[in-house]
Simulated assay, not measured.
Amino acid sequence: MRSSSISAGQPLHKGKIMRERVVTVGDHLPLVGIFCEPDADRVSDSKTAVILLNSGVIHRVGSCRLSVSLGRALAEHAGIATFRFDFSGIGDSDARRGTLTANQSAIEEVQEVMDYLGKWKKIDRFILYGLCSGAFAAYRTAIADERVLGTVQLDGYCYTTWKSHMMHYSPRLLSPTRWLTWLLRKLGLRKVKKGVEVSGIEEQFFEVPDFASYPPKEDVQQGLKTLNDRGLDMLYVFLGNEHYKYHKQFEDCFDDVSFKDNLTVIHRPNATHILSEPEDRRRVIEAITDWVNEKLPAY
C-alpha cells in the first residue's frame, strides 16, 4: 500500500449547507479529488463517507456531471461526506507506473483514499459508488476490504437469463420492420450507426457495458455470496440497455445467493446508460440519496 500525505486546499464551494475543497492523496504522483462535506450542524454520520469512482476515462465530474450532482446531494440531503476522485492516469491524476493491472490498481487506489480519509477525518466506513466500470471497481474493492459497508452500482455485473433472452428476441423475430432493416444492412443499403454517433459524445468518453469482457458468472456469484454473508448493503440500478430486460433479472441471474433486505434493485429501462436526460438523473440521484438515508442508521 502506498503511503499518503494529507493535502487539502482552500474551499472551492462554500454554502449554507456544505463545502468543497480540492484534495490530493499521496506523496508522489498524487490522486486528485474533491472532498464535499456538510456543515457541522448538518452531519448525520461523521464516520461514514461515500467515495465516487470514475467511469471509464471520464473525469471525476462523471457523465453529464452526475458525480458532482450526486456528491453534493448526499452532503446536502443525507448529511454525509463524499469524495469524488480521479484514478491515476485519468482527469487530474497523473499516471503511475507499476506492474499492477488496471483492475488491481483501482482497488489499491480506492484503499489508499480510504486510508487517507481515515487519517484526516477519522472516517472508517465507506459506501462506494460507480457507473459501469466504476461499479465493477466498487464490487471488487468491497470484496477486498471490509471497511466497505455498502455499494451503489449503476449497470453493474449481471448476465442474461432465459426470460431476458425471450424478451429480447421475441419482438425482433416477429417484427417485419426489423427483418427489413436487417436485409437492408446485409445488402449495404443502410448504415449501422454506432452509439457514439447517436449520442454525440466523443468516442474516448463513450463507455457502454461490454458483456463479452465480464468475468465468469460463477466468479461473480461467489463474490456476491461473500458480500451477502458479510451483510454488505447493495443498491443496483440498471438502466436502458439491450441485455437487462426486466426488474428481477439480477435476482434471477444470481438465484443461488440468498439476498435479504441488504439488496435493493432499481430498473429504469427508458433511461440511457449515461443518464443523459436531466429528469432521469434527478430521479436516480433521489433514489440513491433515499437509500443512503435509509442505511445510515444501521452504520
Rank of each mutant, 00 (worst) to 15 (best):
E197K: 01
K217L: 13
L187I: 05
Q222D: 13
I201M: 08
L189N: 09
L224Q: 04
I201G: 02
Y236P: 00
V198L: 15
L174G: 11
R172M: 00
Q221A: 02
N228F: 00
S175M: 06
S199Y: 12
T181D: 15
A212Y: 01
L235F: 06
Q222M: 11
Y236F: 12
N228E: 09
T181K: 15
S175T: 10
L173E: 02
K191E: 10
E202P: 02
V192T: 09
W179L: 14
E207S: 13
L227W: 01
E218C: 07
L227G: 02
L227D: 07
K217Q: 15
M234G: 03
K193W: 10
I201E: 03
G195N: 12
G195A: 05
D229S: 13
D219I: 06
F211G: 07
L235M: 08
M234K: 03
Y236I: 00
K191A: 06
E197D: 14
Q204A: 10
L187S: 10
W182P: 00
S175L: 14
W179V: 02
F238G: 03
P216R: 06
V198E: 12
R178M: 01
G200M: 03
L189I: 07
V208F: 11
R190F: 09
T181Q: 14
M234R: 03
V208T: 09
S213Y: 04
P176A: 09
L174M: 14
K191C: 04
K191S: 06
E207T: 15
E197V: 07
L180V: 11
K194N: 14
Q204H: 11
S175V: 04
K191P: 01
P215T: 02
L232R: 06
D210R: 13
T226C: 11
L187D: 11
K193M: 04
T177W: 15
T226W: 05
K194H: 12
